[in-house]
Design a protein around this nucleic acid. Sequence first.
DNA 1: ATGGGGGCCTGCCGGC
DNA 2: TGCCGGCAGGCCCCCA
Length: 283
Amino acid sequence: MPELPEVETVRRGLLPVMEGQVIAQALVNRPDLRWPFPPRMAERLTGARVLALRRRSKYILADLSTGETLLIHLGMSGRMLISGAVVGEFHHHHPAPEKHDHVVLDMEGGARVTFNDARRFGAMDLLDTAGADRHPLLTDIGPEPLGNGFSESYLVAHLAGKNTPIKSALLDQHLVAGLGNIYVCETLYRARIHPARKAGDLTRGQAASLVPIIREVLTEAIEAGGSSLRDYRQADGELGYFQHSFQVYGREGDPCATPGCGSVIGRIVQSGRSSFFCPTCQG
DNA sequence: ATGGGGGCCTGCCGGC
DNA sequence: TGCCGGCAGGCCCCCA
């Protein structure tokens, strides 16, 4: 699932069942995901109260009363499923365990949060809350695209002189946090910039224009509850619907949405990833 | 230093 | 129906 809007949607879904609540019991069903879990992870989680549930880039961070922070990354296929919570008038029971249920958090209030990840590109770790920013996975990440640290002057300065295609530059988490293949494709379409264009060859105006466009695409996607592809669902089981707003992603061969354009969406492969674009609008 | 490609895993879809 | 190749939202690591 998970680019920034999907991770933010998951975080918001988890808030009512996790923030301020105690983890009555943590169950860890395997020793690792992408990397080994930290030692005694289940014991270190059990009994802890979740003081805050934050997001940094595509990571969810749960600050615990123990002074540790649980770091969660959903990888490509990770999901956080909520069951047993009272939602509206309906009380949901716990469903039968499923394949790839790797970590289960039973909250004191009765809700259960299950981390399910078929491909196991996801990750969990425990780190000292005080030094969380210095965690190896977090320390080199660029500014939050919806925060004040991401400005037109910042992006213009950091794209200048770059030899790499703008598509790759925007996917680089060191430049700006949280963008993935979908939202970079949609951003470049709205900015009318070809994905293979060298980042350093953009005009200052083009580079600057990317900032409000990135903010707009991400904000719209968050408001839509993210994008649901394949079996991805929000934590509460609802489907996000931003995928209906894709103008290029996954639309190879479809007509370009720009009125009067008349071209069809094309696809090229860059660094092994598909880039979708309009050859006319983004010429 | 910077940029490109491989690899990690499983599941799904389309084509034969 | 069944098998197989290709593809997938991420990101670390190695190599040139």
